[in-house]
Simulated scan of single mutants.
Amino acid sequence: MRSPFHLVEKSPWPFLCSISVVCVAVGLVEWMSGGSLHLLVFSWLLLVMVLCQWLRDVVRESDQGWHTSYVASNIRFGMVLFILSEFFFFFSFFWAFFSCSLVPDVEVGGVWPPVGIMPLNVFSIPLLGSAVLLGSGVTATWCHHAVMSGNREEAIYGLVMTIFLGFYFTFLQVLEYTGCTFTIADSVYGSLFYVMTGFHGVHVIVGSVMLLVGLFRLVNHGFSSVRHLGLEVSIWYWHFVDVVWIFLYLCVYWWGGGV
C-alpha cells in the first residue's frame, strides 16, 4: 500500500543554494566597496541555475502525484511558518526604526528625520509604488479565484498583470533610489531606510519569480481548480509582501519622513 507521505530524495540544491546566496552577499559587498562585478555576476548566475533546477524537481514531484493531501497540508503549514518567520524578520527592523525615531539621540540632532537628511516626497514615487503594489494584490486575488472556479483564461490574465505590476514596482524602487539625496552611510536613517526597503525589494523579486513559475505551469495546464498548491502559496507570499509595504509606507515614508 502506498504511503500518503513523501520523503524527498537526497538533493544538492539546498546546499548549492546556500553557497550561491553567500557568494551573492560577498560579491555585493565587494562591488559596493569599489571592487569588480565578476563574483557578483557569477554568483547570481549560479543562484538562478540552482533555483531553476530545484523548482524543476519540485514541479516534477507534483506532476508525479507525490503531493498528496497530507503532503499538501504540510506544505501549507510550512509556508505559514515561513511567512511567520519573515514577519519577525521585518518586525526586528521596525523595532530598530521606532527605537531610533521615537527618542532620537543627540548624534542625529535630537530630531527625526536627522539633521541634514532630506526625506523623499511621500506623495511622489512612493505613493505610485504603493498603488501599483496594492493593485497587484487585487489582480493576484482575481487570479486565485479564477483558478478555483476553473476559469483558466482569466487566471492567466490576472497572473500576468500581477507579475507585470510586481516588476514595475521594482523599477519604481530603483528609480526612487537614484533620486535619493542620502545614502546608506548617512546616519541611522539612511541605514534603516535602505535596509528595510531593500530587503522588501528582494522579497518582491522573489515573489515575482514564484509567480512566474506559477504562470509557466498555469499556461501548460499544470493547475486545476482543486490542485493549485504552488500558485496558492505563492499568492499567500505576495499578499504578505503587500502588507509589509503598507507598514513601510505609513511608518518609514509618511510618519518617519516628517509629514
Rank of each mutant, 00 (worst) to 15 (best):
R2C: 10
V8A: 15
K10T: 09
P12T: 00
P12R: 03
W13M: 02
I19M: 11
I19C: 06
S20T: 01
V24S: 00
V26C: 04
L28H: 09
V29A: 11
L39S: 05
V41T: 08
F42H: 05
F42R: 06
L45I: 01
L46A: 12
V48N: 10
C52T: 10
W54S: 01
D57T: 11
R60V: 04
R60Q: 10
S62D: 15
H67K: 14
V71P: 04
A72P: 01
F77C: 10
F77I: 13
M79N: 15
S85R: 11
E86G: 09
F87C: 12
F87A: 13
F87E: 13
F97T: 03
S99W: 11
V106R: 15
V106F: 14
V108W: 09
G110P: 02
G110C: 02
P114L: 02
G116F: 04
L127P: 01
L128Y: 05
G129M: 04
S130T: 10
S130V: 01
G135F: 00
G135I: 01
V138S: 05
T139N: 08
A140H: 06
A140Q: 09
T141M: 14
T141W: 14
A146H: 01
V147C: 00
G150P: 07
N151W: 09
R152A: 04
Y157A: 12
V160P: 09
M161Y: 14
M161Q: 15
F164V: 07
G166S: 07
Y168N: 05
F171R: 13
V174C: 08
V174S: 10
F182I: 08
D186Y: 09
S187P: 09
S191L: 14
F193T: 03
F193S: 04
F193P: 03
F193I: 04
V195T: 12
G198A: 08
F199R: 00
G201S: 08
H203K: 01
V204S: 06
L215N: 06
R217D: 05
N220F: 13
H221P: 08
G222R: 00
R227F: 12
R227V: 10
G230I: 06
S234T: 02
Y237G: 06
F247Y: 08
L248Y: 00
Y249C: 04
W254P: 09
V259W: 15
